[in-house]
Design a protein around this nucleic acid. Sequence first.
RNA 1: UCCAGCGUAGCUCAGUGGUAGAGCAGUUGGCUGUUAACCAAUUGGUCGCAGGUUCGAAUCCUGCCGCUGGAGCCA
Length: 430
Amino acid sequence: MKTTIAEVGKHVNESVTIGVWLHNKRSSGKIAFLQLRDGTGFIQGVIVKSVVGEELFEQAKHLNQETSLYVTGEVVEDKRSPLGYELQVSGFEIIQEAHDYPITPKEHGTEFLMDHRHLWLRSKKQHAIMKVRNEIIRATYEFFNDEGFVKIDPPILTGASAEGTTELFHTKYFDEDAYLSQSGQLYLEAAAMALGKVFSFGPTFRAEKSKTRRHLIEFWMIEPEMAFMDHDDSLVIQENYVQHLVQSVLKNCDMELDVLERDKEQLKKIKAPFPRITYDEAIEFLKKEGFDDIDWGDDFGAPHETAIAEAHDQPVFITHFPTEIKAFYMQPDPNNEKVALCADLIAPEGYGEIIGGSERIYDYELMKKRYEEHGLEGPAYEWYLQLREYGSVPHSGFGLGLERTVAWISGTEHIRETIPFPRLLNRLYP
RNA sequence: UCCAGCGUAGCUCAGUGGUAGAGCAGUUGGCUGUUAACCAAUUGGUCGCAGGUUCGAAUCCUGCCGCUGGAGCCA
């Protein structure tokens, strides 16, 4: 009977056939151990000379790493196995023999592994990270569907930038100039006026020459946008969403977190509501901690974010940033025009900012004034201003960076391992 | 773009002026419970590239290329 490694628990003491790749092997004179994987998991096949005969045993001893084969054998429970089961091999059929697989079961450097990313994905740790990523994606759809959001897909080819600050990838759109989307937000605001609560989930592109463990050139973002919701309403959605992601991974990726040696106790502590501190309080805190390289009006650098995160064992909202260091569309605080109704969510353990969000300006005159101040006039913005002309309402939204969130929850040091094929500065291959 | 470090066997690295090395992988043999198995033998080199100093350069100097980490910017 054909099955998968994930399903062997249902076939104890039965003979099954599984399509697998040989991950590693160890052999002695009369017994060999085959480390097998099939995409759903890893299992050890035990092959004994006296059971399978000399010819098959000799063949098994000479199987190369990553050779593909159909293995047949009896599923047996075994306490020595991390999975709890082993396969007592009775026979196998080689599909294709592999030769000189580059990624040996020893240590390798980053450049070598990244050059072989198409093969590196087969390894245990990368497999586990991709499963955690998938769980976060699944839980995202679950959360927003349960909360009554409608998924909206904004365009990837756009005529202009959302924020006008960061570098955009330029391309041609027949005879016109076009840019790859760096955010779907403006389009989501339009959609929120049509459908109330919406979210997008898609790739975004930043042509920044960033070269750190927290940056990708192409990354995936979840961007909810909610009509009739103010800044505080939005923070509640954000913390419930992030809590749901952590809970879902703890519940459905226990084995993967073990493979990744993630400290699960840190994740179990994550409970909404999350602490909120204002930008003013954050500056004061940093001064007290001995940072003399930051003053009111400066944006935080990575060391500042880490210092604030380390003071808490929960994600932390930093709210009310100065208007001038934030995007043009953010609603000024009615109690203090110098700061905006916005928040960044900083992940614990030094993983950095995972969410940026704000209440949006909905007054037509103020939005028009901001456009002029930022020199953003042009036909591409006309439709965005019209949203403030025809039944404008208060609304808020935020963007969560998928890969940074995967890095934090899975405990992965560098963001490049949290996306199947990372696009980095100097890396477009494979 | 700036700052720092690195570049030697398929991989990970040692070698800092005098014959090019180790571990792993590969190959051959041994071993009935291995967990990156172990033991023995063995194959494997444009020392990133170009120029310079020197009797002699992997080693010292200059330039270039590539990579890694960080900064700025941001999710």
